[in-house]
Amino acid sequence: MARWKELPGGLDPVVVEFVGRLRRLKDGSGLSLPRLAARTGYSASSWERYLNGRLLPPAAAVEALAAVTGADTARLLALHGAAADSWHRDRSADGTDPDAAPDHGPPPTTVAPSPVQRPVTRLRLYLTAAGAAVAGAVIAGVTVAAVDGQTSAASAHPVAVARPITYACTYVRKAGSWYAGNSDTRSDALEVDMSGPEVAELQCLLQRAGISPGGVDGNFGPLTESAVITAQKRYHLDIDGQVGPRTWAALRG
């Protein structure tokens, strides 16, 4: 039986139970990681991340493991679904889950309170609400006075409103490779929970290949991961749902 590493701290108990189930199935099969990779079609490095709680496996990998080990596929997928809900809910609460962001751009920056600030007493909540109400009344009064006396000045100096980042796919063929106008990278490593123009470039190239990533929003979520896995299967690459030089080369070719 493998001597497993301790799982990362902070994982939801549902995720811990799911990963523990995967470990027991792997141990019971007697397969090494390379042999498990060969039998399931997912790389050994991917299984190392899945079995150590660093990345949640896609449903297709869970089905492949069930087929190899003879496990109950429906039950294992049910556990996977519960773990996925907890996994993405935790990241959404931390402001790091791309699926929690709107489709028109990357998620807004959020600042989580420090651990010592999390416990808030009911009295503090009341005091905060009362203070906010008083401050709101004062601000409202000042605003009305300002509008009454300085309407022309306000209209002369409008407040600038930041616009969300949007991405487009403008395909150009250069030196035998396709580019979509968001990034020229051919080697940047991308994986789930990342965002930016490189992810938008990836999504455009997936669309050009006829594989839908669920939209071009610059966020690497589960739909984009599923599209990457489909592309890796099509181009006979290592199937891990992550993007490196070989996946870039296949999509740009």
Rank of each mutant, 00 (worst) to 15 (best):
Y126W: 11
T170R: 13
V134A: 08
A84Y: 03
A130H: 09
V134I: 08
W87S: 05
S114K: 14
A180L: 03
M194D: 10
E63V: 12
A74F: 08
H157I: 10
V116M: 11
G105T: 08
D85E: 14
L65Q: 04
G149K: 04
Y171A: 12
Q150G: 12
Y179F: 14
P98G: 02
G141T: 09
M194A: 14
A154H: 11
G95S: 01
S114F: 03
P106G: 01
T143M: 03
V161K: 11
P158Q: 02
L123W: 11
A160S: 07
A137N: 05
D85K: 15
L123P: 11
R163Q: 15
H157K: 15
G95A: 02
T151G: 14
A168D: 12
A83F: 01
A130R: 10
A100T: 05
R75I: 02
V134M: 04
S155P: 03
D99R: 10
P107W: 09
H88V: 01
L65Y: 03
D188N: 03
V161W: 08
N182C: 06
T128M: 15
E191V: 11
A67I: 07
R91S: 00
G196C: 10
L127E: 06
S152N: 11
T110Q: 13
A112M: 09
G149P: 02
R118E: 07
T143R: 08
T128I: 06
R75K: 08
S195T: 12
A83D: 00
L77G: 00
S114A: 12
T170S: 14
A146K: 05
S86C: 09
T166C: 11
T166R: 15
A154D: 02
A74N: 10
H157R: 15
C169H: 04
P119D: 04
A145Q: 15
A101R: 02
R186Q: 06
D85V: 14
C169N: 05
S152P: 02
A145N: 12
P106S: 07
V138F: 05
K174C: 01
A162Y: 01
V147H: 10
R173I: 14
Q117S: 15
V134G: 08
L123G: 04
T110C: 12
G105C: 09
D72F: 01
A200W: 06
D97A: 09
V192T: 11
D193L: 01
T166E: 13
A101T: 01
